[in-house]
Design a protein around this nucleic acid. Structure first.
Length: 426
RNA sequence: GGAGAGGUGGCUGAGUGGUCGAAAGCACCGCACUCGAAAUGCGGCGUACCUGGAAGGGUACCGUGGGUUCGAAUCCCACCCUCUCCGCCA
């Protein structure tokens, strides 16, 4: 949600950002509604004030047994009724319109985010590792099916497109990957492990800016809850409606959860394989910070995500997203892209965003310094550390050999005792 | 799923139609006392929004949303949540 006062002060800033996202005129529209809300509010409150005053005098008159004065005053209040109702409705109406409008408008990018229309405007920040150009690399589908450990047909029969059945040593590798990532983030990077609900209510989805705009991307249960598209939703919602003591910040939490996405707008993209699925595991990182900490925390979070790829010795690059490629709630986003040999390109495997106070305003999450009056909205950050399914793909493709076997990265050996290769005897 | 009890300020908890934004206690802040601290005494202490140059004024908020009434924390309806007991259950 947006700070209406900031919008009043620097509408041109908002207009520029929203125009770039195809919402030109939105700032003026919001200011116009804001003016109407305030005028209606003033009128309503003035009438309410009169009503309250008269009603109070009714009580006094009755206490003094002056029934004539009492009924006179009651008649006076009665005369205000129609105004009261009309003004109240006007205020609520404008207020809801303004809220709906603001809830549909994306966050404002930080000043240092590069301008750009789409992913071509993203800026490479750094690169790690050397892509090993295997001669005619197989893709993970061919590898997995060749090993008899990926079964897309069985998944399609029971669930439909965009699901996978993983079997045997490959299923075990997926499980090991999740454990490894979670252990790395909790034991080395200081995140607190959390096992959150996978079904959430409207408020949690709204607070993390998945509603109302992206309802189509979510799965909804018959009793009106939502399957989480990412653990960002429950993890960030830990502070929903809370006032957190400043000493407790930054709050760093992580979770390994399944993620459910309807991928409504993605038909035709990445239809082959398990790059884009309705369901996948992901280790999510969430930090709740004070406003002044969030930029430093963002850099730290990116390096926490990078540490996973480094440990697995997977070549990647770190991208600073441009204005046009950023998500709805972010004010700055870094993507990590891992090398996928079969495609000869880097593909997104992690996305780390600083949302500033955008989500905090929506969910009313604040912080208070001991001994000081007043509260501030917290800043919220989230990042993948990492997407397990895509990491599995990256390992399969980067660690394949000519015979179609897959070596196990060194860092995972302690999670897979006795197993050195997928498709080997072990 | 069934029966019952309950949701009031940071916490505990009073308040069942009219100066109630709400007693009291705890916590917290300031002052006094003290060499200092504790104890004690006095005072202060909710949030959001609107309005005003300021002082100030106003409105709303007692789980949420409706309703009744001149007037609602208080009465009515629906929903949500918590607790206790029973049932079921990984």
């Amino acid at each position: 949600m947006h700070d209406i006062r900031a919008l009043r002060e620097t509408p041109e800033l908002y207009e520029k950002a929203w125009a770039a996202k195809g919402r030109s005129g939105a700032a003026a529209q919001a200011l116009d509604l804001d003016g109407k809300v305030r005028a209606a509010k003033l009128a309503a409150e003035t009438t309410q004030s009169k009503r309250n005053d008269l009603s109070k005098r009714v009580g006094l008159a009755k206490a003094q047994k002056d029934e004539a004065l009492a009924s006179q005053l009651m008649a006076n209040v009665e005369a205000l009724k129609s105004d009261l109702v009309a003004q109240g409705e006007a205020e609520r109406g404008f207020s809801l319109d303004l809220q709906d409008l603001l809830a549909s408008l994306p966050n404002i990018p930080a000043a240092d985010v590069p301008q750009g229309a789409d992913e071509h405007g993203n800026v490479e920040v750094r690169r790690w590792g050397e892509p090993n150009h295997v001669a005619s690399p197989k893709d993970h589908v061919e590898l997995g099916e060749g090993l008899g450990m990926l079964d897309f047909e069985a998944a399609a029969r029971m669930s439909g497109a965009r699901f996978t059945v993983i079997k045997g040593q490959l299923a075990r590798l997926e499980r090991a990957l999740g454990q490894f990532m979670l252990d790395l983030q909790t034991q080395q990077n200081g995140y607190l492990e959390v096992s959150p609900p996978l079904l959430v209510n409207d408020a949690a989805a709204y607070g993390t800016d998945k509603l109302p705009k992206f309802a189509d991307d979510l799965f909804k249960t018959t009793d009106g809850r939502w399957l989480i598209p990412t653990a960002e939703v429950p993890l960030t919602s830990l502070v929903m409606g809370q006032i957190v003591a400043e000493e407790e910040l930054p709050l760093r939490v992580t979770a390994l959860t399944p993620c459910f996405r309807s991928e409504a707008g993605a038909s035709g993209r990445d239809t082959r394989g398990m790059i884009r699925q309705h369901q996948f595991y992901k280790v999510e990182l969430v930090s709740i910070t004070t406003p002044d900490q969030s930029d430093a925390e963002h850099e730290r979070m990116v390096s926490c995500a990078e540490s996973v790829l480094k440990a697995l010795e997977l070549p990647f690059r770190t991208m600073l997203l441009c204005t046009g490629d950023m998500g709805f709630g972010a004010r700055r986003t870094y993507d990590l892209e891992v090398w996928i040999p079969s495609q000869g390109q880097y593909r997104e495997i992690s996305s780390c965003s600083n949302c500033g106070d955008f989500q905090a305003r929506r969910m009313d999450a604040r912080t208070k310094k001991a001994g000081e009056k007043g509260t501030r909205f917290v800043h919220t950050l989230n990042g993948s550390g990492l997407a397990v399914g895509r990491t599995l793909v990256a390992i399969m493709e980067n660690y394949q050999d000519e015979s179609g076997r897959i070596a196990i990265p060194q860092a995972l050996h302690r999670y897979l005792p006795g197993l050195t290769h997928i498709g080997g005897e072990g």
